[in-house]
Amino acid sequence: MAGIATGEGPIRHGGDLGEARRRFPGAPEPWIDLSTGINPVPYPCPPIEASHFERLPAPDDLRALQAAAAGAYGAAPGQVVAAPGTQALIALLPRLRPAGRVAVVAPTYAEHAAGWRRAGHAVAAVAGPEESAGFDVAVVVTPNNPDGRRWAPGALAAFAGRLAPGGWLVVDEAFADLEPGPSLCPVLPANAIVLRSFGKTYGLAGLRLGFAVAAPDLAAAIRDGLGPWAVSGPAIAVGRRALADAPWRERARADRARDAARLDGLLERAGGRIVGGTCLFRTAAFAHGPALFEALGRAGIHVRRFDDDPGRLRFGLPAGETQWRRLDAVLAPVAASRGGSATG
């Protein structure tokens, strides 16, 4: 699964269709990329004025973006820092404090452990945040990628209080926007930093926009670390409008939940046991996982596999009925041959 990075070579991520095409050169085009957890129905981008490309972003525009994010996340504007994607924040945070002991709740998104390790911190994988007492930093992803585990804000706040003096609790809520559970942002502990992704929720990953939510002193340190003009003018323009559009977000939440339930049905009939996920991706265990990965690849469908657990596959949501039919065309014969029984 998406485990702790070792520092030996690059980390494999979803979304690399070049790798998929090299592995399956005879697969039909266009490829269907289900290897990421990105909303397949993107927010309708408004027309972007030419001036957003022609001049540096204005401070007032950035403040307006951060205010829109604060409203969406239940935070105060002074707590919000805009960045060119949450990955930039994952790389930055380890460089903002001296080397120490970092607990990462695993298995999870591997860049967290890799970022802290690259900056000279000692990283330990722990099974849950309750094991992080006394550490200098604890990193928790909720909902977790790839298994969808969740921790309630009250529990997270308690864990924050058990860290070493001056310690940080880093909570990655990249997949939280469309989920029913509450966020830590409205009840933010003074030593917590919450990361929020824009691109996953709004289906605009290429825009490169994300946010950190932290107490004002921590937020100021993160802004200083990013430097001026970290977020582009076009990203600010689109982000301001999308984050203020609560009705769109509510519709997306309901629609993607229905899509996730539909995907569960397809995977279970093909012998998969759903082991977790969110409404933007589902992770399933198959007795025949490697063979199914190969069959999907030959059909031009890219899903996420895990080297340390090859029986598990992660599926994003198809975009539109054509993609749903192509996925079903691969899974239906598997379901028929196996009687649709799920594996343990």
Rank of each mutant, 00 (worst) to 15 (best):
G37K: 02
I38P: 02
N39D: 03
P40W: 01
P40G: 05
V41L: 10
P42V: 12
Y43N: 08
Y43F: 12
Y43Q: 08
P44I: 00
P44L: 06
C45Q: 12
P47H: 03
P47Q: 13
I48A: 01
I48V: 06
E49G: 14
S51Y: 09
S51M: 04
H52I: 02
H52P: 07
E54A: 15
E54I: 02
R55G: 08
P57S: 09
A58K: 08
D60E: 15
D60L: 10
D61S: 10
R63F: 07
R63E: 15
R63D: 11
A64L: 07
L65D: 00
A67T: 15
A68Y: 00
A69T: 07
A70K: 08
A70T: 00
G71R: 11
G71I: 02
G74R: 04
A76Y: 07
P77M: 07
P77A: 10
V80E: 12
V80Y: 13
V80G: 12
V81L: 05
G85D: 14
Q87G: 09
Q87V: 14
A88C: 04
L89G: 04
L89W: 01
L89T: 11
A91N: 14
L93H: 03
P94F: 11
P94K: 11
R95V: 06
R95Y: 08
R95N: 05
R95S: 12
R97F: 15
P98M: 06
A99Q: 14
R101S: 11
V102M: 00
A103G: 13
V104E: 07
A106W: 00
A106G: 12
Y109G: 08
Y109F: 14
A110S: 15
A110D: 14
A110C: 06
E111M: 14
E111N: 11
G115H: 13
W116V: 11
W116F: 15
R117S: 13
R117L: 14
R118I: 00
R118K: 13
R118D: 14
R118H: 15
A119C: 09
G120D: 01
A122K: 11
A124W: 08
A125N: 06
A125D: 06
A125F: 03
V126R: 05
V126E: 08
A127H: 13
G128W: 07
G128L: 05
G128Y: 07
G128D: 14
P129N: 10
P129A: 10
E131N: 04
F135R: 13
F135D: 07
D136V: 05
V137W: 00
A138N: 10
V141D: 11
N144A: 13
R149N: 07
R149Y: 06
P153Q: 14
G154V: 07
G154W: 04
L156V: 13
